[in-house]
Amino acid sequence: MSQLLSKIAECIEFGKINKAAPYPPDRKGQDGADELTKQALDEGIKAQTILSDALLPGMEKVGIKFRENKVFVPQVLMSAKAMSTAMVHLKPYFLSGEVKEKGTFVIGTVEGDLHDIGKNLVSMMVEGSGWKVVDLGTDVKADQFVAALKEHENSIVGLSALLTTTMPSMEKITKAIKEAVPNAKVAVGGAPVTDNFRERVGADFYSSNPQGLVEYLNSQVD
């Protein structure tokens, strides 16, 4: 069992989606996350075990490598694709309650900003770490974030911005969230954002990379 789980973890880490996928070249023709996850379920390995002992460790390694500049966005996207392919097999177990999600993370690019690459990358990394992600898209206004937080109680919210010109929106939205949902935790990120900015606007967390956010989110789980 442990050998099969290790193989699945490696497929996530190196972005091996399925047998037909040519990437990575050294695993061409080998089973990928798709086939191996199905095999694990067929052999009676619990979905929760596959998630916690194979998928999450594989994605965590990718996150750490990305933070350390050992892999880059294309490799992370391949790993995220392998993860989502494996998750298709586990979805019924999430719906039945057999597999537990860690919590809910609401994310969006703030009002006035239409950039979504960073947001999408963060979303995939967070989802790949066992969280439910509610992606509000781009150009998201304060009332949309507040409505999502009220709909998904006890969720944590992430605000993304790529432009310095939209940083005032991030400040306005953070204040609106704190007024409407005082206990809400707000994380901010994006190219122009700094920890000093986070402190000034009253947000709870800042990270320059997705893995830092994942580790913060995991630290908030009871």
Rank of each mutant, 00 (worst) to 15 (best):
K65A: 15
G58Y: 01
S160H: 00
S79K: 02
H115F: 15
K185G: 03
K150R: 12
D34M: 08
P192Q: 04
N209A: 11
R198S: 09
E179K: 07
I156M: 07
G190V: 03
G137D: 14
S169G: 13
E153G: 12
A161N: 05
M78C: 13
F205G: 03
L90F: 09
L217A: 01
H115A: 10
T165E: 07
A82G: 08
R198W: 06
V146S: 03
P25S: 09
P182E: 06
L162E: 02
L114Q: 13
I177W: 01
K119P: 12
N120Y: 14
Q220T: 08
D222L: 12
A191E: 03
L136Y: 07
K38L: 09
A187N: 06
K178S: 04
A161W: 03
D26H: 10
K7T: 15
D34H: 14
F14H: 09
A142C: 14
N69A: 12
S219K: 12
D116E: 12
A47M: 07
P210V: 03
D116A: 14
P24R: 13
A86G: 09
G108I: 00
H115R: 15
T174L: 10
S96I: 08
G58M: 02
A161M: 11
K46S: 12
T164F: 12
L41E: 00
M124S: 15
V221W: 08
P57K: 13
E35G: 03
S208L: 11
T104P: 04
G44D: 11
R27A: 10
K70T: 07
L136P: 06
W131T: 05
V88A: 07
G108F: 00
E35W: 02
G212S: 06
E101A: 06
E10H: 14
I8F: 07
